[in-house]
Amino acid sequence: MIEIVDVVKRYGHTYAIGGINLKIDKGSFVGLIGPNGSGKTTLLKLVFGYERPSSGYIHINGESPSTMTNSFITYYPEVESLYSGMKVSQLLGWYSEFFLDWDKEKEKKLIQFFDLPLQKYIYQLSKGFRTRLKLILTLARNAKLFLLDEPLSGIDPTSRDRIVSAVLNEYREDRTFILATHIVSEAETLFDRTIFLLDGNIVIDGESDDLRSKYGKSIDAIFKEELNA
């Protein structure tokens, strides 16, 4: 599904990605774990095509990231860029027009699941509800590749379980997920594979259960103890 070959991303003299080689199979659910500034966001942006590698290349189903590949990729950005002057219902309508793989039924279910107030203006929503709205905008599509950047940040711990189960609910054998997070404990059962990033490089990569038996501890504990995060 995704092939990343010798990818380096430089901003001036700073290396955001130091040289990554990675293959991700269709149907995997990858946890991309690392402290702030480790390169998680940059890597997702490179896969989505928001950024171009300084060297190396990325292929998605054999093609470079483009508007064509973006037609089956749904991306949950960490930063918020919602049009605050719109009503929630207007924004959803706009998205459903724009994306061919938008699933109206799923949209309805997600609105119910997240108790989203449709008639409010986006600027009236609390941070927690903006996050839920962003998540609906990402998950209501029947995409093939889901790139989720820190969907658990800024969410109170009781709502995290709800988000985790909404994401899990979207998994299918023909869908691939990459979820970047530094909040590991609530999300770690989602990942069949976990990749740890540190300073723009992959430091640990393996099947999550194999890592648990190798280190004798949870993915969360590996993150905290082995990476000194």
């Binding site: 899990l168 998994y171 059962t189 989602l190 069949d192």
Partner: peptide
């Protein structure tokens, strides 16, 4: 089963 116990289906498949 994956939904019931809250884990990735690939883990259940294994």
């Amino acid at each position: 089963l994956a939904k019931e116990v809250g884990v990735n289906p690939n883990t259940v498949a294994r």
